[in-house]
Nucleic acid binder design. Structure first.
Lengths: 377, 377
DNA sequence: CGTTAGCACTCTCGGTCGGAGAGTGCTAAG
DNA sequence: CTTAGCACTCTCCGACCGAGAGTGCTAACG
C-alpha cells in the first residue's frame, strides 16, 4: 500500500453543495476568513479582512458576502456583534476544494530525515521519535502507531539458562521483531539438554505462528519420549506470540503540552482534563475512532475528520488528520494491520501543513521500515 | 540496601523548634487543622474544627491557639477573614512528629501483589505497572525508575543474519537485560562464519563491559588474520553497551490526569501547563531534583521534600515523597544506581498514605527483582 | 490566668450596572 | 452591484454593593 495523495473527508459523498456553488469571490473570501482564523484564533471581522489583505472592496460588500456564506452554512458568528468563524462545513469545503496541495519544506524534510537516521534502528524507536518530533513541530497532539502483523511467525528460538529453574526465552519472529520472556521452569533441566531443545525447536517451528505452536504443544504431550519441559516451553511460546501480537501495535502519543497551550483549551478546564486523562492512560482507541481505522485498513488513503465527524463527544471541536502506512513485507499469508500517523488538534488547525506533515512522516516511516526490514532472506 | 523505615525531610537538621515546643493541645490542634485541610482543601475555620471534631472548647479558644500556631510559623491564612492553612513548616512538623506510621491496607497490598504477578516478568513492565497502578490509586503524579547498573557486562552474544548485509545483534547482559541492535554490515559475511564469530566472541567477552570491549576491538584491528567484520561488531557492541546503560534507567511517569484534577491545579492554568509540558517530554530530571537522587543513592533512605525544599520554582507548592530501592545483585564490582518510587502532589497531600504506598511499592519492586534476577549462576 | 461571649472589622464572592468598543444588518443613495 | 451611514446588539471590563465568613480584640467570668 502506497500512501496515496487521495484525501478523504467524512460526508464527502454528500454533495449538498451542488445546489449552491460558490462564486469565485465568495470562495476567495471564505478562504481568507478561514486562513485568518486559523492564524489568529479570533473571529474575523469584515473590516479586518479588507485592510489586512487589501481587498478591492469595502467592508460592507464583504459583509454582504459573509452573510451569504453564513446562509450557506460555511460560517457562523458566536454572537451578533462578533466577527465570523468557520463552521465545520466551512472547514470541510476548505480542505476539499480551497486549500492547495502543500509539501513540507525541504529544509525541514532533511532535518527530520537526519534525526531518523541518527536513531537506533528499531520500529518502536522510530514511532516514538516520529510522535515526539512531529508533536513538537506542530504543537498538537500526535499519535503514531507502527504497522503490525496479525500473527507473528517464529524465525528463531533461543533459550538461555539464567539459573536452574529460570530460563530467558528469546524469540525472533519473521517480521524482525524480537520477544523476550522470562520463564520459571516447573522442573530443572540440564544446560546441554536446554541447548539441544532450543536448536531443535528453532528448526521445527520456523515459520509457524501461535496456532501451529499450540498444535505442536499438544503433540508433545502425547509423545512418550519428550522432556516434560518441552511442552512447557511450547505452551509459553504460544502465549507469548499471542501476547506480543497485541502489544506490537501500541501507539506512541506525544504533544499534550503543545495541545493544551492552544487557545481553545485555555478556557475550558473540564474538557482539557478529560483529554489529559485519556492521554495519561494511553487510550489511543478513544482518541481515534475505530471506524476510521477500519476504513483506513481497507482503502489506505489519508483521512481528515472534521469536528462533529468525530463520534467521541470529547473531540467535538477537534479535527483529526490520519495518514496510514504499511510495510512492504505484507503478503497474502501474513496480513498486516497498517500503522498510522495521526494529528489531533482544534478544528482551527493548519490543515495544509498538518496534512503535508502527516503524509511526509508516514511515508518516511514506511521507507525506513522497508529499508531495514523489507528484504529478508 | 534495604528500604529503611527511616524518614528524611530536608531542613531536619535545623532544630529551630527547640525554642518553642508545642503544648500537647496546640500540637493536637495543628494535627486536626492539617488533616482537615488535606481532606477538604479549604482553609479551616476555628468554628468548623470545633464542631466537626467535638472539641471541648469554644471557637474563641481554638482561635487563640491557632493564632499562636501562626506566630510559630506553622499556619498561615490567605487573607484576614479566611480559615487557617498549614504552612510548609507546619507540614514538615506534621510529617516528622505528628503523623503516625501507616501501612497500606492488607487488601490493597494483596490486590497490588496480584497485579504484579499477572504481569510479564520484566523490569520495564513492572516499573510501568507500578507507576500506573500507584498513580491511579493516589490520584497524583508518580514517577518510578528501575535500578540500573552503571556498567553493563556481556553475558552472551547472538548474531542473527537477516540478509546479506544486515545482522540483528542480541546481547544478553549479566544483569539479565537484553539489548538488540540492527547492524548494517560494511561488507558481506557468510552465515557460517557469522555463527562462528558469534560463539567465539560470546566466549571471549563474557563478563566484560564497554571499556574491555573497546580494548578487544583495538586488538582485533591489529591482529592480521581476523575477519574485518569482527572489529565492526566489537565496535558496535561497545557503543550499544554504553547507550543501553543510559537507557536502562528511564523512569515511567503516570498520573497526570489525577494530578490535574486536584483542586490546586484547577485555577492556575499557566502552572498546570508547565507541568503538562514536563510530563509530555518525560523530563523526570526536572521533576525530581538531582540533589535528592544523589543523597538517596548514598543513604538509601526515604525522603520527603516539602514545598520550597524543592529547587524548581514550578513545584513550589508541591511535595515529593521518594522511596529508593535497589536490587540485591549489587556487588562492589558492579555498582548500581538505585531505582525509586516518587510521588509528586500538592503540599496538601495525604502524607501518611503516600509514604506508606511509596514504601510498599518500592519494597515490592525490590522483592520482584530479587526473586527473578537475584540469583544468577 | 485560662476560657469564652460579643462585636467590630476585614476580606472574598457573586451579582448587577453601565459605559466603551467592536461588528453587524439594514437602508438608501451612488 | 457597491458603498456610506447609522442604529442596534452583544461582549468585555471595571466599579460597586451586599451578603457571608472568620478573625482579632476586649471585657467579663470561673
Amino acid at each position: 500500500m502506497q500512501p496515496s495523495g487521495d484525501l478523504r473527508t467524512e460526508h464527502n459523498s454528500v454533495r449538498a453543495m451542488t445546489s449552491e456553488q460558490l462564486s469565485d469571490r465568495r470562495a476567495g473570501i471564505l478562504q481568507l476568513v478561514i486562513q485568518d482564523y486559523i492564524e489568529t484564533a479570533t473571529p474575523v471581522a469584515s473590516r479586518h479582512v479588507v485592510e489586512k489583505y487589501a481587498l478591492p472592496a469595502s467592508p460592507a460588500t464583504i459583509r454582504h458576502e459573509m452573510h451569504a456564506l453564513e446562509q450557506g452554512g460555511f460560517l457562523t458568528h458566536p454572537h451578533t456583534s462578533a466577527g465570523r468563524v468557520p463552521s465545520n462545513r466551512g472547514y470541510r469545503h476548505f480542505v476539499q476544494s480551497l486549500m492547495g496541495h502543500a509539501e513540507l519544506g525541504l529544509a525541514e524534510q532533511a532535518s527530520v530525515r537526519h534525526q531518523f537516521f541518527q536513531a537506533a534502528p528499531a520500529v518502536d524507536e522510530w514511532v516514538e521519535l516520529a510522535a515526539n518530533v512531529l508533536a513538537r513541530s506542530l504543537g498538537l497532539l500526535v499519535i503514531v502507531a507502527p504497522p503490525h502483523p496479525e500473527r507473528l511467525r517464529v524465525r528463531q528460538l533461543e533459550l538461555i539458562s539464567l539459573n536452574e529453574l529460570l530460563v530467558l526465552m528469546i524469540v525472533v519472529v519473521q517480521e524482525a521483531r524480537m520477544i523476550r520472556q522470562l520463564m520459571p521452569l516447573p522442573q530443572p533441566i540440564e544446560v546441554d539438554e536446554l541447548d539441544d531443545l532450543a536448536t531443535r525447536l528453532s528448526w521445527m517451528l520456523r515459520g509457524q505462528s501461535a496456532p501451529d505452536v499450540r498444535e505442536a504443544a499438544r503433540q508433545a504431550i502425547d509423545a512418550p519420549d519428550t522432556h516434560p519441559v518441552e511442552h512447557f516451553v511450547l505452551d509459553t511460546l504460544a502465549q507469548v506470540l499471542d501476547r506480543d501480537a497485541q502489544r506490537a501495535g501500541v501507539p506512541a502519543i506525544a504533544g499534550l503540552g503543545g495541545m493544551m497551550a492552544q487557545p481553545e483549551f485555555q478556557q475550558v478546564p473540564e474538557r482539557s482534563l478529560e483529554l489529559i486523562e485519556l492521554v495519561d492512560q494511553h487510550a489511543a482507541e478513544d482518541l481515534i475512532p475505530s471506524g476510521v481505522i477500519e476504513e483506513v485498513t481497507i482503502d489506505g488513503a489519508m483521512h481528515v475528520l472534521i469536528g462533529d465527524d468525530h463520534p467521541t463527544e470529547l473531540l467535538q471541536d477537534c479535527s483529526l488528520v490520519l495518514a496510514p502506512y504499511s510495510s512492504s513485507t505484507i503478503t497474502p499469508d501474513s496480513p498486516e494491520i497498517p500503522g498510522y500517523v495521526g494529528v489531533i488538534g482544534p478544528t482551527r488547525m493548519n490543515y495544509p501543513r498538518n496534512i503535508a506533515a502527516a503524509r511526509f512522516y508516514s511515508q518516511l516511516l514506511q521507507e525506513m521500515i522497508d529499508a531495514v526490514y523489507g528484504v529478508s532472506r
